[in-house]
Simulated assay, not measured.
Amino acid sequence: MNQPHHPVHHEHDHPPGPLADASVRLARVSDAPAVGFVQAVVFREAYAAELAPEVIAEFQPQAFASAWRATLEGAAAGDGVLLVACAGEQVVGLAAVGASSDPDADDSTAELLVLAVHPDARRQGHGSRLLHAVVDTARARGRDRLTAWALASAEEVRAFLVAAGLDSDGAHRQRVVGPDGETAEEVRLSASLEAA
């Protein structure tokens, strides 16, 4: 019986997919410079409308990298876990999760301490992958609730978190974000991590 002949095309008949694999993994000490760079870029963007330019200028990659290096070396890790999103080998995002320090939280509450994706790497799923990894990490540590603080002015960030299942729980605070006591208003979102 003859099989129908299907010509083999060596050229792509469809648009090429992403050039690099996307992944999330635990951060390594060697990631500190890349993590510091991403955080500085994202924080400068996030706080641009909130703080004076001279305060924004204080958000330097080296300062963030030094703090993350100390955390990753164990000097300041505590209960926290730092995760990184990668495009191939390049770190393009970060998320940190740890115990909540809110006065109304108990031992079962985890806090998303930071979630940041470089502007050039957004809308590629890195934020969602990071958030899923944060939830998995929190659950693995026995936590059944996740909270996150977001700038009141950061509508896009809050929309992303709400779409992921977190909701505003009515808490708000003024966070000190500058060397001279400059503050920015934040609102808290939270979600249950218990299986439905």
Rank of each mutant, 00 (worst) to 15 (best):
L82M: 09
E186S: 00
L161H: 06
E111F: 00
A49R: 14
I56V: 14
A159H: 13
L115F: 01
G98P: 07
A163T: 12
A96Q: 14
L166T: 02
Q62C: 02
G178M: 01
E73W: 00
V176Q: 12
A152I: 02
L72N: 07
V162T: 15
E194K: 15
Q124P: 05
A67R: 11
A163G: 15
N2I: 11
A70G: 13
V117A: 06
D102K: 01
G78Q: 03
D104N: 07
E186T: 00
A20R: 11
G17E: 08
T71C: 05
A116E: 10
A70E: 14
S153P: 02
D79W: 02
Q60R: 15
V97S: 01
F64H: 09
D180N: 12
S128N: 13
H6Y: 13
V29S: 07
A95W: 07
A196P: 15
V187T: 08
L72S: 08
L131D: 01
A46H: 08
V35L: 14
A184S: 07
E58T: 15
S101I: 03
A171M: 09
G78T: 03
V81H: 09
R28K: 09
L19Y: 02
T109I: 07
R25G: 06
S66A: 15
S108Q: 12
R145T: 14
A105G: 04
P179N: 09
Q62W: 03
P53C: 10
R175N: 09
A163Q: 11
R143P: 01
V187R: 11
T183R: 13
I56T: 07
P33L: 08
A105W: 00
L112W: 04
H126F: 14
A95I: 05
A191R: 09
T109K: 00
H6M: 09
A27C: 11
D104Y: 08
G17A: 11
D104K: 05
R69A: 13
A152M: 08
A105N: 03
L115R: 03
L131H: 05
D79E: 14
A85H: 03
L115S: 01
V29Y: 08
G178L: 04
G181K: 03
A65K: 03
D31T: 09
A133W: 03
E73T: 03
G88P: 06
P33F: 09
L82D: 01
P15K: 11
R139P: 05
D102L: 02
E182C: 07
R69W: 02
G88R: 07
P103Y: 06
L26P: 07
E156K: 11
G80M: 09
A49K: 13
R188Q: 08
A63I: 14
A32D: 06
L161G: 03
A140T: 13
A195R: 12
V84K: 00
A40G: 14
E73G: 00
P18A: 14
S100I: 07
G127F: 05
F59D: 03
A152W: 06
H10Y: 10
T183I: 04
A196F: 07
V55T: 11
R143N: 09
G142D: 05
A65L: 04
R25I: 02
A48R: 15
D21L: 12
D169C: 12
A87H: 13
H126W: 08
E186M: 04
P179I: 04
V42E: 07
G165P: 06
E194H: 12
Q60K: 14
V187I: 14
A133K: 04
V114Q: 10
E194P: 00
L19F: 08
E73S: 06
S23P: 01
E194M: 15
